[in-house]
């Protein structure tokens, strides 16, 4: 694992309008090319932490520093540019734009970034879809796809601009076991190719893919453990190790 920090979270707190404190004084660093998983009981603040780090939400206080700039202080324009260029996001409910075709969904962030020609964006989208086993579905409507296929489209979309960080919020939550494993395999493969991933999950099988697990409890980081990079041949031992640690955390 490299030790190059990509995001620093400093004293981050999140309080909602009803005075409900979700996160309190979070300090955290995310390192380049790592696969970080955030776990914890329901209501602990996992998704809120992910949304605040990924600029999907604005923290009440604290800083999120990316390449020496505080993301919480960015203008709408700068923030939008950060989202389209530096990050990708995968959701439990896919969040694809339903009236766009598979190819259009994947291309849209690429067209928006304008760093490549339209033709290049389309070609990259097609390559990504082929790599994810969806080459034949490029022109299909989103509604015609299965859940697993939709999530793979979401992965392709999140990777179209080659983001520095990929955020995933329960990406296997709405999928059957087989589709879930396919999605996790895709994420793992990308991580092994150098993609930084931060993922929130409840699922132990998903957590096994991580080389670092953060355990959140009552809005604070209760545990932070580094694991060896994922190796499918060592799955049983890894499962025991992760499970034991999680039990220790009160999972």
């Amino acid at each position: 694992m490299t030790e190059k920090s990509i995001i620093q979270v400093k004293n981050l707190s999140k309080r909602y309008d009803n005075n409900n404190q979700i996160l309190e004084g979070i300090d955290l660093e995310i390192f380049e090319s790592t696969f970080t998983v955030i776990m914890g009981p329901s209501g602990a603040g996992k998704s809120t932490l992910l949304q605040n780090i990924s600029t999907m939400d604005q923290p009440t206080s604290g800083q999120v520093v990316f390449e020496a700039q505080d993301l919480t202080k960015l203008s709408d324009k700068a923030l939008s540019r950060f989202r389209r260029k530096e990050i990708g996001f995968i959701f439990q409910s896919f969040n694809l734009i339903e009236h766009l075709s598979v190819l259009e969904n994947v291309c849209l962030p690429g067209f928006l970034l304008k760093s490549k020609s339209k033709k290049q964006v389309i070609q990259r989208a097609k390559d990504l879809l082929t790599g994810l086993g969806l080459g034949d579905h490029a022109n299909q409507a989103i509604n015609h796809l299965s859940g697993g296929q939709k999530q793979r489209v979401a992965i392709a979309r999140s990777l179209i601009n080659q983001p520095k960080i990929l955020f995933a919020d329960e990406p296997t939550g709405a999928l059957d076991s087989t589709s879930g494993i396919e999605v996790l395999d895709n994420l793992t493969l990308n991580n092994q190719n150098g993609q930084t991933i931060v993922m929130v999950t409840h699922d132990l099988k998903a957590a096994l893919r991580a080389d670092r697990i953060l355990f959140i409890k009552d809005g604070q980081i209760y545990g932070d453990r580094i694991f060896t990079p994922y190796d499918a041949s060592q799955l049983k031992a890894r499962r025991s190790e992760v499970e034991a640690w999680l039990l220790e955390m009160g999972w």
């Binding site: 709408d76 939008s80 989202r83 389209r84 996001f89």
Partner: peptide, 12 residues
Amino acid sequence: ALKKMLGFTNVQ
């Protein structure tokens, strides 16, 4: 919200 997530600005 989805479009914002993808990087569209409010003005766009």
